[in-house]
Design a protein around this nucleic acid. Structure first.
Lengths: 109, 109
DNA sequence: TGACATACTGTGTTATACATAGTATTATGT
DNA sequence: ACATAATACTATGTATAACACAGTATGTCA
């Protein structure tokens, strides 16, 4: 395997789990899939459509998000927003994330 | 699903990809599986045996690690150390990691 | 009117952590 | 001397989920 492929693979792995946290953190204001996609990429986190849409559905199934179809706009969009349960989870997640970062910083120093 | 289960699940996901980076960063000095396990947990990263051992083999298959059995010690141990290819990869990975962290920090702020 | 951005759905595959169990040796305390 | 814990690794099964890829369809704008 070429070195660049290894890099790509591992970087993908690195980013994988963070997407959930990123998504939850951005859904204090409601977003639809495509707008969230843009919002994330504007901030430097490129996520594939094929990753994001299923993720949103999954997080809704897990009760961390809620969604509604809005048909009155230019075109139908499914809006997602963080749920009460998600709100409770988010600060804990952030704390876990901070802990992980500090562990990694020590380890990489 | 109970809230604490959601947390556990997502935290697991968060940590998942980082283990590779952590392992690579620690294998500048050679370690065997069990000592690496302790080294990581000492620094605050608990990794299951059933996760670490297969990971080490996988990283060796990918050419990022090298290993040798040492039989002359108290008991047989397989020692792992980062390979030349791994050494080339590591700084790039660290850079990617730093980028990800800064993106996440902005996003979570 | 052609191209591009928008917005979502669906399927298949692959990779991989994790759970769990099992084996066996060595060190340690009492 | 014996039980127990720590050490050190192997192996198998399963569930999950990202990613690749493809497809559908509408709005916008030059």
């Amino acid at each position: 395997m070429a070195n660049s492929e290894s890099l790509d693979k591992v970087v993908l792995e690195l980013r994988r789990g963070l997407i959930v946290l990123a998504v939850l953190s951005q859904l204090g204001d409601e977003q639809y899939g495509y707008s969230l996609l843009k919002l994330l990429s504007d901030q430097g986190l490129e996520v594939d459509q094929g990753t994001l849409y299923p993720l949103l559905r999954r997080l809704e199934t897990q009760g961390l998000l809620e969604s509604v179809w809005k048909l009155e706009e230019a075109r139908p969009r499914r809006y997602y927003v963080i749920s009460a349960e998600g709100e409770k989870l988010l600060p804990k997640l952030k704390k876990e994330w901070a802990g992980i970062v500090s562990v990694m910083n020590k380890m990489l120093a």
